[in-house]
């Protein structure tokens, strides 16, 4: 597989919309639903995962000729786990509140399917710059999905956005949105909206 010689711009539009890791590639849904209870948490998780994505893609691309085929998954996992732990320690030291809120899901970035999938599908066969760029684009897409989810869930579930009340005074928050079912249903509707938009585009394009 040759390197994708796509322009930087199209790589970003892929990461954000057309190949959005969460809503189109359907990867990494666990943390998206668990963490998107508040916009602050969503952004924090998105940025942490993006950091790990960029660095792991870069390192794996650098080492791609050095890692033998049959141990590549183990090698990827070691690299990813290292960067995740670094992020974990940095968050605990410099953003302790975020670290507590994200809790279990920071170490779980290791098994975030997005990172492993991009390492396997992209960083393994592409150059360092392209891989880093791909990491950034996918990370931004992931963060965008998180923000979309958490805006809906925080506004409807707690009446605030980033802690600031945004709903009219008579509004009684639907607490269910902040709990598990709210996560499932919001993601379901977002993916449905995405599929509808992409289908329309396909139909229009074909005409």
């Amino acid at each position: 597989m040759k390197s994708d010689l796509k322009s930087v711009g199209s790589r970003f539009s892929d990461g954000l919309i057309f190949q959005n890791p969460v809503t189109v590639l359907l990867l990494g849904m666990c943390p998206v639903m668990a963490v998107s209870v508040s916009v602050f948490n969503g952004i924090g998780m998105g940025l942490s995962a993006t950091f790990v994505l960029i660095f792991s893609n870069t390192v794996i691309s650098l080492l791609r000729k050095f890692i033998p085929e049959n141990v590549r998954i183990a090698a990827y996992i070691v690299v990813i786990a290292t960067f995740v732990t670094i992020v974990d320690m940095l968050l605990q030291a410099f953003f302790p509140q975020l670290s507590k809120s994200l809790g279990l899901f920071i170490p779980l970035i290791v098994v975030n399917c997005i990172i492993l999938a991009r390492a396997e599908a992209f960083a393994r066969v592409n150059g360092v710059f392209n891989s880093a760029l791909d990491g950034l684009a996918m990370g931004i897409g992931f963060t965008a999905a998180l923000i979309a989810m958490s805006v809906v869930r925080e506004a409807l579930g707690a009446g605030t956005l980033l802690g600031v009340p945004v709903m009219p005074p008579g509004f009684r928050p639907a607490l269910l949105m902040g709990l598990a079912p709210g996560g499932f249903i919001t993601l379901g509707f977002i993916i449905a909206a995405m599929q509808w938009a992409l289908n329309r585009r396909k139909r229009k394009g074909k005409l």
């Binding site: 079912p181 996560g183 379901g188 509707f189 449905a192 909206a193 599929q195 509808w196």
Partner: peptide, 23 residues
Amino acid sequence: IPAAFEGFPIALVTAALLSMAFM
């Protein structure tokens, strides 16, 4: 099922209902 909901979206909505039951 409506076209937009086919596949994962309807599965997620179903999961939401299951999750509510477990609550």
